[in-house]
């Protein structure tokens, strides 16, 4: 599954701190080859969300080198970021849906922002995807009326609708029942088979064992791995 071409994501000795506080990420170095699938794990407060923030360009590192899609982010100008972000799909732990829009409109947002897609095609793709995640009868519901699991599925649909090159998911199955969690993981796997690079942050050891993908483990701001799922299963919890 992995290849040895230029990695899609590369971190070299990256450090990150908020303001003048201590470093929450220390000397992080790893690479995500294009078309790879990784789990990112670690206990609460280990720095998973901070690492994801660096990846979806919501924060800048305090030191080190990050390249994304072959581009050194230190040289990226503010006006370059939207084009980079459009190639990244993100499933946020807190969903980050727009409450005044329906599920259908939330999912359609990335396509509408990108432009160049016919409205009819947007409607069709959104409807198909919402049907697929089991929300065919909730298309016009607004997020405040959806359950946590339903919001999660809308967030996932929004993240994948535009066919991102990099998919980042922060605890994407945390609010889903086992069947739906497996179904969505299979969706991620399917996207991965079609070339999308996937990084899933999760605490769920059963999920990691079930899907045999390499694991990156964060502990106290430092990164270990990648481990195979079997190695990770044998490793003691930090």
């Amino acid at each position: 599954m992995e290849n040895t071409a230029t990695p899609l994501v590369r971190f070299e000795r990256v450090g990150m701190r908020y303001g003048i506080g201590p470093e929450v990420l220390r000397d992080i170095s790893f690479a995500l080859p294009e078309g790879s699938f990784h789990f990112l794990t670690g206990s609460s407060g280990a720095g998973k969300s901070s690492l994801l923030r660096l990846l979806y360009l919501s924060a800048r590192p305090s030191r080190g080198l990050i390249t994304l899609f072959g581009r050194d982010l230190a040289t990226a100008r503010r006006q370059d970021l939207p084009m980079l972000r459009r190639r990244i799909g993100v499933v946020f732990q807190d969903y980050r849906l727009l409450d005044h829009l329906s599920a259908r409109e939330n999912v359609a947002l990335p396509l509408r922002l990108t432009g160049g897609v016919e409205e009819e095609e947007i409607r069709r793709n959104v409807a198909e995807l919402l049907d697929w995640v089991g929300l065919g009868d909730r298309k016009d519901a607004r997020p405040p009326t959806l359950s946590g699991g339903e919001k999660q599925r809308v967030a996932i649909a929004r993240a994948v609708i535009a066919g991102p090159r990099l998919l980042l998911a922060d605890e994407p199955t945390g609010n889903l029942d086992e069947d739906m969690a497996l179904k969505l993981m299979r969706l991620f796997a399917e996207l991965n088979r079609h070339g999308t690079t996937v990084l899933v942050a999760t605490h769920d050891r059963a999920l990691i064992r079930r899907f045999d993908y390499p694991v990156l483990r964060l502990h106290d701001g430092a990164l270990d791995g990648p481990f195979s799922a079997a190695e990770y299963g044998r490793a003691p919890s930090p």
Binding site: L57, L81, P82, M83, R85, R96, L109
Partner: peptide
């Protein structure tokens, strides 16, 4: 919050 979400999805400042 909405602006932050739109930015993360790929909205430009000009949008």
């Amino acid at each position: 919050r909405t602006i932050e979400i739109l930015h993360l999805i790929g909205a430009t400042d000009r949008y």
